[in-house]
């Protein structure tokens, strides 16, 4: 009897889990599905689940815009922003986690509070700053802004992961003659690697999909994939087939990358539990 109840609970949980997963995945699924429809099929009511797939939307998208140009910009900006942010955040989080002062908590909260500011509120000053420093429509400019917007979250996440590393292990390193730098790179980083990897992955995803600043600070030269998608939405009215094809092309690389690295991600997110 007890066993039976347990089995049914397990089935229930499984169904619920799949339900939530499908619900979360549905928009992506529908987007991919729509990208293989013709424009007519894409807007037909009721929506069609089964149809003759076509690559016409993809063909048109490739014809009209240089996908590789946008993709290269996105990769450049995301990787650069993430790499710089991690490089800056590791020492910051290290000092906050292992040499806290009475202001550490406050600093962390204050850093996070900058994320609560709506970006549009600082659009004009940042735009002017970018213009005056000739960083408008450059990958450098966009990478700097992306890096800065993500930095608080990255520091916060790394801080949380570093806090999981027992301080005596680092102190043992110091007793063994390690400098602060060696202590950080030879003891802390290997131990916190899963956490750093999942933080970097999150940062990559955030940069990859960042639209507000890319649309406002770039026009052509440094326009990333989000601008590529946007170029298929407004001007000529909505063509869902092409829009979906463009979106699918835009998210596909990061989706695949996330899938490959999901093992790392899960390990990172459950770091505390498996330590």
């Amino acid at each position: 009897m007890a066993l039976k109840a347990k089995t049914s609970t397990r089935i229930g949980v499984t169904i619920l889990g799949w339900g939530i997963a499908l619900w979360l995945f549905f928009p992506i699924f529908w987007m991919i599905l729509t990208s293989f429809k013709s424009e007519v099929q894409a807007i037909s009511t009721p929506p069609k689940l089964f149809f003759m797939p076509t690559l016409s939307s993809y063909a048109e998208v490739f014809e009209r815009a240089n996908y590789w140009h946008f993709a290269l910009n996105t990769v450049t900006v995301s990787v650069a922003a993430t790499a710089i942010a991690i490089a800056l955040a590791v020492p910051a989080a290290y000092s906050m986690a292992f040499m806290p002062s009475k202001r550490t908590r406050g600093t962390l909260l204050w850093m996070l509070s900058t994320r609560m500011l709506p970006p549009v509120g600082v659009l004009v000053p940042i735009y002017i700053l970018a213009r005056n420093t000739h960083l408008l429509d450059t990958c450098t400019g966009l990478a700097i802004v992306d890096m800065l917007t993500n930095l608080p979250i990255i520091v916060w996440m790394l801080y949380t992961f570093f806090r999981e590393v027992p301080a005596p292990i680092l102190e043992a390193g110091r007793m063994d003659g390690a400098t602060r730098w060696q202590e950080m790179t030879m003891v802390l980083l290997p131990l916190a690697l899963p956490g750093i990897a999942s933080t970097a992955l999150l940062s990559l995803i955030l940069c990859w999909n960042e639209a507000f600043w890319s649309l406002n600070l770039t026009s052509s030269h440094a326009a990333p994939l989000t601008a590529f998608i946007a170029s298929f939405s407004s001007p000529e009215g909505l063509f869902f087939g092409k829009l979906s094809a463009a979106s699918t092309l835009a998210v596909a690389p990061i989706l695949v990358f996330g899938w490959i690295s999901q093992k790392q991600l899960v390990r990172g997110l459950t770091f505390g539990a498996v330590k």
Binding site: P168, I169, A172, V187, L191
Partner: peptide, 12 residues
């Protein structure tokens, strides 16, 4: 040289 209560070995 110091020996810690929690051993503090390098786990990796």
């Amino acid at each position: 040289a110091m020996v810690f209560q929690s051993y503090a070995l390098y786990p990796h």
